[in-house]
Design a protein around this nucleic acid. Structure first.
Length: 206
DNA sequence: CTTCAGATGCTCT
DNA sequence: GAGCATCTGAAGA
């Protein structure tokens, strides 16, 4: 029971990626905590991974946060209109991170639905319900995370991770029974042998 | 339910 | 100038 501290982000990035499943992402807006369970992640490891922005330790202005200390955010714009949130892992110099790909709202669903679709949850279509926060761009849209969050410290401030809603003063949430799945990452067809790395992790109910 | 084209702007060569 | 760790709405099955 605690907000995840710097140490959590140090270690095997693939393992951290799997460990992040079931943790809670908290985004505080105007004093209101929006709380979501993490249901899908992907690991990116710059030293050996052609899918990683920092493959072969190649450093550019954009990917500089990957080379920085762990427990910071790496947010970038993709396809000209969507933001992707990553959690930087491992000590400075090792460019590694975990991409956030899926969330399940736990508290603040009202505000999240408004940011995501501009309507209240009860006005959402079945299609919108199914595609609520099941993608990196959708997660950022729902939690109002833009590029101003690039390089922010995830252990202080209004965006952080924790192990339970209790950590932000909310009641414990009922957790459905999940099974953990492992597979290839999405949208990296250019990455040669790295397309087959089983570095995507997700939870399914049941 | 599925596939598919188009949107859009920043980053690196 | 090319390409991108994506999403949406429209159209078809």
């Amino acid at each position: 029971m605690a907000i995840l501290c710097r140490e959590f982000y140090i270690g095997d990035t693939v393992e951290i990626s799997r460990n992040l499943l079931g943790k809670y992402l908290v985004r505080i807006i105007d004093g209101q905590p929006l709380v979501c369970r993490i249901t899908e992640t992907e690991a990116y490891v710059g030293s050996i991974d052609k899918a990683c922005h920092a493959y072969g330790y190649h450093k550019t202005p954009r990917n500089a946060p990957l080379f920085g200390p762990p427990g910071y955010a790496y947010v970038y714009l993709i396809y000209g209109m969507h933001c992707c949130l990553n959690f930087v892992t491992n000590p400075e110099g090792e460019p590694e991170a975990v991409l956030l790909r899926g969330l399940e709202p736990v508290y603040g669903t009202q505000a999240i639905a408004r940011a995501r679709f501009g309507c209240s949850p009860d006005r959402m279509s079945a299609y919108q319900r199914k595609n609520f926060l099941n993608g990196p761009g959708k997660c950022c849209k729902g939690l109002s995370i833009d590029r101003s969050f690039n390089q922010i410290d995830l252990t202080v401030g209004n965006l952080f991770l924790c192990t339970s809603p209790v950590d932000v003063g909310l009641p414990e949430a009922e957790v459905p029974h999940y099974t953990v799945h492992t597979g290839k990452r999405i949208g990296i067809d250019y990455a040669e042998e790295a397309v087959d790395f089983p570095w995507r992790f997700w939870l399914e109910k049941g």
